[in-house]
Amino acid sequence: MTRPVTSTGHDPDPVPGGARTLGLRVFPLFAAGHWRVVERNFLLYRRAWKVFLTGMLEPVLYLLSIGVGVGGLVGDFTLADGGAVSYVEFVAPAMLAASAMNGALFDATYGIFFRMKYEKLYDAMLATPLRPRDIARGEITWALLRGACYSAAFIVVMVAMGLVRSWWMVLALPATMLIGFAFAGAGMALTTWMRSWQDFEFVSLAIMPMFLFSATFYPISTYPDPVEAVVRWTPLYQGVVLCREMSLGALGWDALVAVVYLAVMGSVGMYVASRRIGRLLLK
């Protein structure tokens, strides 16, 4: 081994165009680089828009089957604060949160693995002025925008079915984008450690129980205390709380906690993803 003499502090992710302006430092999402990555994906999916339809349909089917179908057997129930809601009203915001999660995760895991390992897309991107952080930001932005399309469609369904009680629901779309951001960031970061398609079983292994048990289909108070304490800190539970409080108009501190939780999760994920891409591809 040689001892590095110079250039050991190689920044795999230097800034294009010299110094960045303060504006771009504060609002990196307005920096141009990562929008080129979003644009590339948009171009691709403009032709494959049909896959969006199935993504939109899935949560609606759950809502009809479990919310309306099973809900008919369950009847109304009382929330912790004493208010009564129908079962379908209770389940709908949880399905909204889950669809935001799924919509973002698919692109951020399978999609990114495919582009990184098989398509060598990021190698091609990194031969241009684009940097690892542009790729991470771009892919995560795309994933959360895709998730937002599903969420928007689902919100329309919820409104049409009369399942929304509060004007707070106008904030549901940004809330679902935050959920998408959290899961896309974490998903992309984890994907950089995936060795083969088999490793994605771990993603399913994490997502499926989370979908079923994060107070999606029944209140968290159903659990014994120790279980409740665990469930309370799963990311999907945080997303469900956020959406449910908006749709039922019962906004509290829990929603604020959820916002901070999801924002931190997404930011850490995005940072890790960008570092990992730099380490894996710029070697």
Binding site: T6, S7, D11, P14, G17
Partner: peptide
């Protein structure tokens, strides 16, 4: 990244001006 030695491309150092 360069492990050792010096490299200049178009008069710039790739470690700091890669983009």
């Amino acid at each position: 990244p360069v492990d050792a030695g010096s490299l200049e491309i178009l008069g710039m150092d790739p470690a700091t001006h890669g983009s």
